[in-house]
Design a protein around this nucleic acid. Structure first.
Lengths: 100, 100
DNA sequence: AATGTATATCGGAAATTCCCGATATACCAA
DNA sequence: TTGGTATATCGGGAATTTCCGATATACATT
């Protein structure tokens, strides 16, 4: 994964917030429990509500995070669930320590 | 230090290269040895030569990196020497691992 | 004081990012 | 098939970033 693309994905307050919210889905997206549980992550609509931006913007931001490898997604029916890719953060942490 | 500002500073290929070059000043800036040694880092002119961009652009990029806390500078005579702030990378690595 | 060198700052054109509304696509239900 | 819901994609105005040339500032030398 391209380093610049990762850092660009992280260069936005809302996208950093989304990543942070996804650290504790149960806490930050309580409605998701009624909806479908947290097995595959949180659906776009829940994230959009919390972010307070338009649907198109949030969908685009999630794509940016995914292209950078920072989140994983899974389509189930009409919903797309997003969750953090923790391995990517571990690798990024090592990269910042040793490569940059 | 603001996280977004740090990631923005890292969201540029040339700035990432500069940081990488400054990991091994003796290797990447051999002329600096004749000039003044590496005690305080590498002067702007050497970095500019290596980057192949204009003096104003490189000076600006170094300011961006400094505002993000990623490099330190020291003015000596008419030269400004820049070096990496290794502590910042250690903190950033921890932040990526635990906070983001 | 006058000139030369190193760096910083200013002003701006082109490219990119931010975020929106509108529309398209995918899936589900009746 | 028709209509409804969730998400993705498109087109674009405003803001920001990229990188430049010109100029300002700081210091050293003569």
């Amino acid at each position: 994964m391209d380093h610049v693309e990762i850092f660009k994905a992280l260069s936005n307050k809302t996208r950093l917030q989304i990543l942070n919210w996804l650290k504790e889905p149960e806490l930050n997206f309580p409605e998701q429990k009624q909806h479908a549980g947290f097995d595959h992550g949180v659906c776009v609509g829940q994230i959009q509500l919390k972010a307070g931006l338009t649907q198109s913007t949030v969908s685009e931001y999630l794509s940016v995070l995914q292209r950078a490898g920072l989140v994983k997604s899974k389509r189930v029916g009409q919903w797309t669930y997003y969750q953090r890719n923790e391995e990517a953060f571990e690798i990024l942490s090592q990269m910042v320590r040793a490569e940059i």
